[in-house]
Simulated scan of single mutants.
Amino acid sequence: MTEHGPWTGGNKAHNDACHARWLDRLNRKTGQDDYKEAWYYEQCGGCRYWIALQGAIGRDYGACTNVLSALDGQVRFEHDGCAEFTEREDGTFG
């Protein structure tokens, strides 16, 4: 079935396919041998420069807007991260 009107991000099959594709682009994978424990607390979803996408896919993905980050302007998984992490003043996540 084809959707009509503006895209709302509510197509589960499309969102699941994006999620699977985009996981291959992670900067930091939790299963990698050199994953540091500190990185667990420095994930994109807790960075002041991470802006969540709209719709269902926005529960897991957002855009990096940190000019100092190599990931600036890219869509990132909330559990990814980079060296330029800047904690939110209110300590929220996502």
Score class of each variant (00 low, 15 high):
Leu68Thr: 08
Ala70Cys: 11
Gly55Asp: 00
Arg25Cys: 05
Gln43Cys: 00
Gln32Met: 15
Asp16Glu: 15
Ala13Cys: 14
Arg25Lys: 13
Ala56Asn: 06
Ala52Leu: 10
Tyr41Cys: 03
Asp24Phe: 13
Trp39Asn: 12
Asp34Arg: 13
Tyr35Gly: 05
Ala20Met: 00
His4Cys: 08
Asp72His: 11
Cys64Val: 05
Arg76Trp: 02
Lys12Pro: 08
Gly73Ser: 02
Ala13Thr: 13
His14Trp: 15
Cys64Ser: 03
Asn27Lys: 08
Met1Cys: 09
Phe93Ala: 07
His4Arg: 02
Tyr41His: 03
Lys36Cys: 05
Asp24Asn: 14
Ala52Glu: 11
Gln54Met: 04
Arg28Ser: 05
Met1Arg: 13
Lys36Gly: 02
Gly10Lys: 11
Thr92Leu: 12
Asn15Gln: 14
Asp34Gln: 07
Phe93Ile: 06
Asp24Lys: 13
Gly55Cys: 00
Asp60His: 13
Gly45Lys: 09
Glu78Gln: 15
Ala63Lys: 11
Trp50Leu: 00
Trp7Phe: 10
Thr92Ile: 08
Ala83Glu: 07
Leu53Gln: 12
Val67Asn: 11
Pro6Thr: 07
Ala38Trp: 00
Cys18Phe: 11
Gly91Met: 14
Leu26Arg: 08
Gln54Leu: 07
Ser69Val: 04
Gly9Asn: 02
Asn66Pro: 01
His4Lys: 02
Thr8Glu: 15
Thr8Asn: 12
Gly62Glu: 02
Trp39Pro: 02
Lys12Gln: 12
Gly46Lys: 04
Cys18Pro: 00
Tyr49Ser: 07
Glu87Lys: 10
Ala56Trp: 06
Asn11His: 10
Gly58Cys: 02
Gly94Cys: 07
Ala17Leu: 13
Thr2Ala: 15
Tyr41Ile: 05
Glu3Gly: 08
Thr2Met: 06
His19Val: 01
Gly73Gln: 04
Ala20Asn: 03
Phe77Arg: 04
Thr30Glu: 12
Asp16Gln: 09
Gln74Ile: 00
Asp16Val: 13
Lys36His: 08
Cys44Ile: 04
Gln32Phe: 11
Tyr61Asp: 01
Arg48Leu: 09
His4Asn: 06
Trp50Ile: 01
Lys29His: 15
Asn27Cys: 09
Ile57Asp: 01
Tyr41Leu: 09
Cys44Pro: 10
Gly31Val: 07
Ala17Val: 06
Asp33Trp: 00
Ala17Arg: 15
Lys36Asp: 04
Ala56Lys: 14
Ile57Arg: 11
Trp7Ala: 06
Asp33Gly: 09
Glu89Leu: 13
Arg21Ser: 04
Thr2His: 10
Gly94Gln: 12
Arg28Val: 09
Ser69Lys: 09
Lys36Ser: 08
Gln43Ile: 00
Cys47Met: 09
Asp80Gln: 04
Ala20Leu: 01
Gly31Ser: 03
Leu68Gly: 12
Asp90Thr: 04
Thr65Gln: 15
Thr65Cys: 09
Gly73Asp: 07
Gly91Leu: 11
Ile57Met: 08
Tyr40Ala: 07
Ala83Val: 05
Gly9Tyr: 00
Ala83Ile: 02
